[in-house]
Write a protein that binds this DNA or RNA. Structure first.
Lengths: 170, 170
DNA sequence: GTGTACATGTAAAGTGTTACATGATTTC
DNA sequence: GAAATCATGTAACACTTTACATGTACAC
């Protein structure tokens, strides 16, 4: 999913600024399955304005640039609906962690052990964060997606703890 | 992990052609956590040649271009080891499927239901394929990574089957 | 005969990240 | 006094995909 459609989808759930969209995608409910940087979000929003898919109202602030709050237009909503008709492409997962394990013949067991420990710690943090997000219920769909993310994180954690010994067998 | 390091890592497990690397990454044991197209693999291999990190022997074939079989050099192996010292970046997952569910307020329940059904079927296929791969054991590390992939796929399948009703509650 | 697998490679186009630029306010 | 948060935006760079170019062999 490109950043353009991602912005459209997030705005369909409520008005937002570019800054807020970035936060949602980086840390919030969307972080489990998407990514985008300022360098792609701001230009995408500008383009959506030009195309009439969103509108924007500016709010003055002291010491900060004006806040630009974007809203989806009727045409924008149609465009989103249209984009969602297409079959979703396959998931794309990239994991340097898994790659490192596979290629790690040359690396010391201590290093591998440390990689696993770090990873386990990371999963535990993510699980706590996700559980907090589930509390602040938004829609049934967001509960479903957060629950999905939580289930996957927990399973990954279980697997790592149960099977880490495999990597140290001769 | 960039395509360059990916090629280095795959060659560390055994000699391969560009074509074979692409197959491994697209369908094989690496497909769970990486991606790369011919358009990035072939240039990457050429560059690795120029840098002396790999060598190449050509095998003539009838009717097809000569097969170029690449091998990692000692310098290449050092470069890989060096690259693996760095902490792996975070996993990046992108899922149009999950995004579609979150944004699907405007979409009909029938469509959502069909998306889930397709996804369940897809997981079942992947699970069968992964189980076959586990049979053709390579190294303890590859068993670990394949087992990880299998565990995640099975958990995703379980979750979808157990919780799909959430999306249709009023 | 139609499609898939084998096998390499290039060029253009698209997409995205990183680093920069600016600057007040709040927290440690 | 250093770092994080809020807030926007651009430019250079990196990376990837897609489409093209070429051609055989085999299965259905």
């Amino acid at each position: 999913m490109d950043v353009r459609t991602l912005c459209l989808g997030i705005l369909a759930l409520g008005d937002a600024t570019g800054y807020e969209i970035k936060k949602l995608v980086a840390d919030g409910a969307f972080s489990f399955f998407s990514e985008a940087s300022y360098g792609s979000i701001y230009p995408a929003l500008s383009r959506l304005m030009d195309e009439g898919l969103v509108t924007c109202r500016e709010e003055a602030q002291d010491g900060k640039p004006d806040k630009k709050i974007y809203s989806l237009t009727e045409i924008g909503r149609e465009e989103l609906t249209h984009a969602l008709q297409k079959d979703p492409g396959p998931d794309r997962q990239r994991s340097e962690f898994l790659a490192s394990l596979l290629f790690a013949e040359a690396v010391s067991p201590e290093r591998v052990s440390q990689l696993i420990d770090d990873r386990i710690a990371h999963h535990k943090e993510r699980i706590i964060a996700l559980k907090e997000m589930v509390q602040t219920e938004l829609t049934p769909a967001s509960d479903f997606v957060l629950g999905y993310g939580l289930a996957i994180q927990e399973e990954a954690l279980r697997y790592l703890e149960a099977h880490r010994d495999m990597l140290f067998q001769k």
